[in-house]
Amino acid sequence: MSSMLRLIQNENMKIYRKGTNRIMLLMLVGLILAAGLILKLNTPSPKPHVNDSWKQALIKENKNLEKEIKKVPKESQSYLKKEIAINQYRIDHHLPPVNGLHIWKFVDLMTNLVMVIAIFTIILAGGSIASEFNSGTIKLLLIRPVSRTAVLFSKYIAALLYAVLMLVVLFIVSWLVGGILFGFNGLTQPYLQYHNGHVTETNMVLYIFKEYGLNGVQLLMYVTLAAMISSVFRNSALAIGLSIFLLMVGPTAVQFLSKYDWVKYVLFANTNLTQYITGTPVVSDMTLGFSIAVLAVYYAAFVLIGWLFFTKRDITA
């Protein structure tokens, strides 16, 4: 075990001593700051509510929505229904909405950057295995009293730790930037969750963590895919390029093909688990359990293939 820790320590040294990996961390912080400033400059500062005027406004809005719901096609109705239900909940429970952005809304928006973190981690993981082959350092790495399996997993774990660090940075920095730019007074806002026609109040932090968790699963799948390609082809450009390409194109492609039933077994139809919380699943009969099972099978296959190629093949670099 302690030998595994030392291997991870080595990988961390290699990760954080490499300029590109530190630049990616800075870029993440830069992106959050830029997003915050752009949003701040483009949203009018919220006017404070006068008495109960917000209730009147919501009632009016709901009336409009009721009218609209009759005009739109069936598929689009669920979103409007959700809006109406949440507005009604606010009216009933005296929960005035915050006009414009507030700290949690900003943190929630910034969860989109998890995909950027996924891309950064793909770059790191795809590079960390193949670059040892490209540079020839793999020879000196594998003539130590350590199994190839341990070397491979220390690299994989170090890459995931890097992703975790980036997620923590994302949360803390977006919370701080959100608070500083939009005020910390939105902190008490609950998250109103709509599920099967019911609205429930949940803690915002819990909701954000759930978003991170679900997006994190997606990140894990793509990073593992990148690590596998890197191990099989021993080429970082291929591993990084192909993984990012699939990350960009895969989900769109399955949307196009969603009329076929077999699509639900495709990796990209299942990676985005938030489809069960916010949107509708790619194929209508898919469930969260189904997706988790499909992902588990893909994950096991990626790990097995990556491991076989790393441990069984001759080192000719």
């Binding site: 040294m13 290699k14 540079s135 020839g136 350092t137 020879k139 000196l140 003539i143 009293p145």
Partner: peptide, 17 residues
């Protein structure tokens, strides 16, 4: 392997370290 120290072809080391 514990008993071996080796250089195989060129001694490629981590250049950024």
């Amino acid at each position: 392997i514990k008993n071996i120290g080796a250089i195989v072809e060129n001694p490629e080391m981590y250049k950024f370290l």
